[in-house]
Design a protein around this nucleic acid. Sequence first.
DNA 1: ATGGTTTTTACTGCGTC
DNA 2: GACGCGGTAAAAACCAT
Length: 307
Amino acid sequence: MGVDTTVVKCPECSSRNLEYDENRGERHCNDCGIVIEEDIVDQSPEWRDFNDSGQQTDRSRVGAPMTNLLHDKGLSSTIDWQNKDYSGNLIASRNRSQLYRMRKWQARSRTKGSKERNLQQALAQIQQICSKMKLPKTVQERSADIYRRALAEDLVRGRSIDSMVCASIFIANQQMLTARTVDDIAKVARIGPKEIGRTYRDVKRKLAIRTPLPDPKIYVNRFCSELQLGPKVQQTALDIIRRAEELEMTHGKSPCGVAAAAIYISSQTSEQARTQREIAEVTNVTEVTIRNRYKQLAKSLKIELDI
DNA sequence: ATGGTTTTTACTGCGTC
DNA sequence: GACGCGGTAAAAACCAT
């Protein structure tokens, strides 16, 4: 199913640690350093078409960028240091002073404040990670938004940009109810789920950000499709969760665990049974947890699942 | 730091195909 | 014998305080 057209492994050393450099427009391997492909115009989906529909992002900042995913749109393309134009001719002297000004401006804008540079790097990271996760651009923008706030409040100090980036992305995902977990992010970032979780909580608290309380239901669709389970199984799984929520038995339990258990029960009572192991695999929850949860669910909901 | 809760790890036993 | 499942104890992780 998942046809990825981009190269994921370094042809030289087989490392998967590839990085896309936005300014250079090229990808390179972080391990051996070779450049994989050049002249990628933009491999990420369409941040440019911001004119299609109702644009609801708030443009609160002065001199608002066209999209808050770009740090200095238009200045990023490098200005050659030779006094030649594209055909190799010398540029008339009356244009040179203008050129100089452009270079100077560019140099300054690139290295202005540390915050600016920090932001630039972070936004590139956000775009890279979101694109790897195939997240819609609304989520990207929300992530960028959150990062900006965190940066403005000096929350990045003493923490790596990466962890802040990941935390921002996770918060955005929580808010937009995409069914993504910390592990999903950790998988495509070079940072562990532990630290993402820690910074996530920290940022949320210090920025007084509210996220909807975790809902197992949002995972059902994703997990079921990964398990090749039909809509019928999904529906009864959702039903189970709804009933469980009414009895307040999902509080304090991991939403993925609840979803996994509901799906297990649902699948067992259908023609498309899946084993605990299969479900554990895609839900990133252990079989033990699935057992505990589903036992508890079946008991309180009085669901009999004999074969 | 601490303590309460939940999840994971690791292991074992049981029935079935 | 491998597999799916159930149960358990202890370790680890999580989270509010």
